[in-house]
Design a binder for these strands. Structure first.
Length: 488
RNA sequence: GGCGGUAUGGUCUAGCCCGGUUAGGACGCCGGCCUCUCACGCCGGUAGCAGGGGUUCAAAUCCCCUUACCGCUACCA
């Protein structure tokens, strides 16, 4: 049960995947609610029928659940609350605070263009404001549809205290009589948002800074309806690396995409919390409860932030290494299972073993899977640069042969036994240990980087190891034909 | 164009309200240590107050102007 009367909402429109900017807004609402032991509500603003879809609604809910941003109420759908908006509009019509407008979009468009050409701002002329009841009746009988506009006193001053941006002031004359109900009977955003926030008892409206300029209009609606005005807190926008508004072309910016790349919700939440907010001058890593405990809207920054995936990558790596290991292992397995690998037939202990090797070497599960491919695949893919660097060198074939001999004679394929055997071999051959390890690594993994060689050998197993060394040697002989640099 | 907003390294930011710090932290990058490679970890380094005027003994901090960027300017949200 909530211990305060604070109520906030996250109100996305289901017209696209939930991207990190929206998630940050959801997160700040959620943190504020939890910090104050208030109520967090989800409301889908789906009055734009043409662009809204159930699929996106589903995605939004899934994303919030996955991130652990649990809601206390909702989801509410504006499309199911149309009667409420109609009532509000009719109240305004009756009280004379609003009027029907029969101007056509074409007509208005023409006006807009004319004014724009003169370098003036478009403000509705107020043409339909003075229509007599008879005229209105007449127009309606002709079947002409009307929109509804709010009657705005051009001299009215609107001032409000934004928790983040401070005092904002504007005069109503800057925007004129604006539409609150479209001719199809659906409310516009500025009406619906006010009616809903009031009906839901929202005390703090926390939303993107792109709504800052709309707020004065909404305040006018609050006043006209006689509603109490809530507190506002606008959040700075999140931009792509090119400093434009985040969008698809900036790569993975939706939560689901991040999930598909194997990012952890803990890391995403922590990272996003720090985009536009900082509790002090040094803290970076904060648990969910610490975030809740320390969060404050008053510390939110006013300037737009660039979404920098490299820092998220770092933070995700940090969480990979510091969350309970078994937890990470379980999630990795879950991730692998959805990535096309038939891991069900892998031995569970073995699978956990190889994952453990990569936990501190991977920044997300996608990278982990990439690093683990040589364990999972039967065939090794040899990276050209790795081959050039460690395989096409003098005496490599000889060394690989010696390694194969040594390993095949080995009964015990555990790490300590492998280490003893291989270090012994290096000593016998009178070469540095690295001269054995590097070619061997490339031979069995196809790459220059891998977990410790003894771990790799152990988990790959004797049979597969020897097979791969054999393969690498044949591979060497073949490439030796084409360029005669190799000495046997 | 009009209106609103923002401006600390490449990026996220602390400091600004209540002027005096070698302008702090993190990511990245560079170098070193560790070492079988990579990663981790540790150590060190790089780089910033958008520009210009004031006010003041003293300005990232207060005031003004300029510039840049963002948002709104829909019968979208």
């Amino acid at each position: 049960m909530p211990k305060s009367n604070i109520r906030v909402r996250f109100a996305p429109s289901p017209t696209g995947a939930l991207h990190v900017g929206s998630v940050r807004t959801a997160l700040f609402n959620w943190l504020f609610a939890r910090h104050n032991q208030g109520v967090f509500i989800l409301r889908l603003e789906d009055t734009d029928v043409a662009r809204s879809s159930q699929e996106f609604t589903r995605q939004i809910i899934d994303s919030l659940n996955w991130l652990g941003l649990d809601t206390d109420e909702g989801p509410y759908f504006q499309s199911q609350r149309l009667e409420l908006y109609r009532q509000a509009v009719s109240q305004l019509l009756i009280s004379g605070r609003a009027y029907k407008c029969f101007c056509t979009p074409e007509e208005l468009d023409a006006q807009r263009q004319r004014l724009r050409a003169e370098g003036k701002a478009f403000i509705y002329s107020g043409k339909c404001r003075s229509l007599s009841p008879e005229q209105i009746k007449d127009l309606e009988q002709k079947g002409i549809k009307s929109a509804v506009r709010l009657k705005v006193d051009p001299d009215e001053m609107i001032t409000f205290e934004d928790i983040v941006f401070g005092t904002i002031q504007m005069t109503a004359g800057k925007f004129g009589d604006f539409i609150i109900q479209r001719s199809d009977g659906l409310p516009t955003y500025n009406l619906a948002v006010v009616v809903d926030d009031h009906a839901m008892g929202i005390t703090h409206v926390i939303r993107g800074d792109d709504h800052l300029s709309n707020t004065p209009k909404q305040i006018l609606v609050y006043r006209a309806l006689g509603y109490e005005i809530p507190q506002f807190a606008h959040l700075p926008l999140i931009l792509g690396p090119d400093r434009t508004r985040l969008s698809k072309r900036h790569g993975a910016t939706s939560v689901l995409e991040l999930k598909d790349q194997g990012f952890l919700p803990e890391a995403i939440v922590n990272f996003l919390a720090l985009l536009g907010w900082a509790p002090d001058e040094t803290t970076q890593i904060m648990s969910r409860s610490e975030l809740i405990r320390r969060f404050s809207l008053k510390q939110v920054s006013r300037s737009a932030a660039v979404f920098d995936i490299t820092k998220l990558l770092w933070m995700n790596g940090y969480y990979m290494r510091n969350l309970p290991q078994q937890e990470i292992i379980n999630r990795a397995i879950e991730f692998f299972a959805t990535s096309g690998y038939d891991i069900a037939r892998c031995d569970r202990t073995w699978l956990e073993g190889i994952i453990r090797l990569e936990i501190e070497r991977s920044k997300n599960f996608a990278e982990m899977l990439e690093h683990l491919r040589f364990f999972l695949d039967e065939e090794v893919r040899y990276e050209q640069s790795a081959v050039d660097k460690h395989l096409k060198k003098e005496n490599v074939d000889l060394r690989l042969r010696k390694v194969a001999e040594t390993l095949s004679a080995l009964e015990d394929f555990t790490q300590p036994a492998l280490e003893k055997a291989l270090r012994g071999l290096a000593e016998n051959l009178g070469v540095k240990f690295g001269h054995i390890v590097h070619p061997l690594r490339v031979a069995i993994t196809g790459r220059t980087a891998s977990p410790g060689i003894f771990d790799v050998l152990h988990f790959l197993g004797k049979e597969r190891t020897l097979k791969r060394i054999q393969f690498a040697r044949q591979f060497l002989i073949k490439s030796d034909d084409s360029n005669a640099e190799m000495t046997p």
